[in-house]
Design a protein around this nucleic acid. Sequence first.
DNA 1: TGTGAAACACATATCTA
DNA 2: TAGATATGTGTTTCACA
Lengths: 150, 150
Amino acid sequence: MIDATDKQILRLIQRDATLSLENIASKVDVSVNTCWRRVKHLEETGIISGRVAIVDPESVGLGQTVIVSIKTNNHSSEWLERFTEKTKNIPEVVEFYRMAGEVDYLLKIVVNTVADYDRVYKQIIADMEISDVSATFAMECIKNTTELPL
Amino acid sequence: MIDATDKQILRLIQRDATLSLENIASKVDVSVNTCWRRVKHLEETGIISGRVAIVDPESVGLGQTVIVSIKTNNHSSEWLERFTEKTKNIPEVVEFYRMAGEVDYLLKIVVNTVADYDRVYKQIIADMEISDVSATFAMECIKNTTELPL
DNA sequence: TGTGAAACACATATCTA
DNA sequence: TAGATATGTGTTTCACA
């Protein structure tokens, strides 16, 4: 369903989406036309889910990354639905996972200052039964990439 | 240094980088030329750090996200240098932070299976003094975006 | 800052193996 | 069915006013 050539194409454009079709085509050794068809197919099937510009967080005053672990004692589907809907719509929450093990949910939040985090924290816990929230602050971002290991 | 119009432009292209300059220009109400110059400036100054295609992890067999907490008892600069260099070059490690508090480092790893994670784990701990590694597996990804709250 | 023209890249039709 | 060739169209880039 996705062959070696497709993988090569993905590897290239997930690193740099400004590459022209001509350029990609020559690198993966197919015709421009074929390359275009393959890229189009990858887009239509959702394997390529979008093309975006990456903004440097520091430059726009969002240099503070906070990792938040959440435990709940309410495991009803009503609670879950309400919690996930509310939380994923907070723009500062950029990643949000339901976890196995001790912690029920894990969030990654980007803000400018600890005070800004506090505002987001209050938004998250408002009207929700949450048994434990623990935040840890990133001191340094060593790596943060959208490039998948293909 | 970065005004409201720049922010609007960033907001648009960090969501969808396929928008044409004409389209963006009309939305933020400046001329195509001005818009082009602003985008160029944002790129040159590194505020836009790149343009990438986002690949759907599930589609390429990388549906398992693992969050790894690492504690060390060796806080020498030699150790730190060696550890960060080695770890950030592992392609499965897509995020890597130095943290404040209990945990020293936090990694986000994308793999296909738990067995694949084990291989990455072995790579990370090889030849390194690490006092504690604890992995938690994501059951469900509820949100994962590159869009910053601007 | 705006205009316009050249360069470039994209999308598609048509043809071939 | 997949790839190659050819071409009209749209977009970007940049010089100049």
